[in-house]
Simulated scan of single mutants.
Amino acid sequence: MQRTSFDDMRCPIARSLERVGEWWSILILRDAMLGMTRFDDFQASLGIAPNMLTRRLRALTDAGLLERVRYSEKPPRYEYVLTPRGRDFRPVLVALMAWGNRHFAVEGQAMQLIDELTGDIVEPVMVDAKTGEPIDRARHAMHAGPAADERTHARVEAYLQRRAQQHAASKTSSQ
């Protein structure tokens, strides 16, 4: 079965998934954020088949998330280093970790975000960079951007209509 490409979709979520939507890719990025750079380290950490790891590393390199850097001439060996684009993926990983801890860690949290100045466990939230206000469903809504195509406009408009109906219904029921 041929995989669908999202590259032509004018949706930032779809285009992001085109680069990192395969689960091995996200786990490789997790390990890279934890400092791993070498093929053997990724393979040992993930238990992934070498051919699959090779494909995923190549895809992440082609997407500009990792850079392949030679560290040995004889034999030629490479490591995979996060690029600025790859490092920008960190908040996504932190959000996935927090979401997973909140909803799927039945045995307890296997990973936590710690404030290294205080030693406190941190509960990450997404905030508006301009106001510092936490992003929440009641106050913030997705809207079509200037580059949105017709499909995106239609999808977002339907969402905004459902949102308005829900707000109206909740106001009516609270009166």
Rank of each mutant, 00 (worst) to 15 (best):
G64M: 07
M33D: 12
D8G: 14
M1Q: 12
Q112R: 15
I26T: 12
G108V: 09
L27M: 10
S5M: 03
A164K: 13
W99M: 10
A63M: 03
R56N: 10
T4K: 15
G35H: 00
L117I: 04
P50N: 02
E157M: 09
A98Y: 06
C11H: 11
N51F: 06
L82K: 06
D136R: 14
M52A: 11
L57S: 08
T131V: 07
M97L: 14
E116W: 01
A147Q: 14
R3K: 10
V122G: 00
Q161D: 11
W23R: 08
R155A: 12
T118S: 15
A59G: 12
W24S: 14
S174F: 06
P50F: 01
G119K: 14
V127Q: 13
T118W: 01
A59M: 04
Y80A: 05
T118G: 06
N101T: 11
Y159W: 09
G64Q: 02
V69W: 03
D120E: 13
Y78P: 08
A95E: 09
A59N: 09
P84W: 04
S5N: 04
L96C: 11
E107N: 12
T131P: 02
R3S: 15
S174G: 05
R30P: 00
N101Q: 01
E18I: 01
A105P: 04
Q165W: 04
L17P: 06
A168K: 08
R155E: 02
A148N: 12
L29T: 04
V156K: 02
P91I: 11
S170P: 02
N101Y: 10
R102G: 03
L60K: 02
A144F: 01
R87N: 05
G35R: 01
L60Y: 01
R70Q: 13
T131L: 12
D128G: 10
A169K: 04
E107R: 14
A147D: 14
Q165T: 08
D7L: 11
D62I: 00
A44T: 11
S170G: 00
P50H: 05
Q165I: 02
R3E: 14
Q112V: 14
L34C: 06
A14M: 07
D128Q: 05
P124Q: 10
S174P: 03
R102A: 13
K171R: 15
R151H: 08
E150F: 10
A14Y: 10
F39V: 03
L65W: 05
V156R: 03
M36H: 11
R10V: 05
I114E: 05
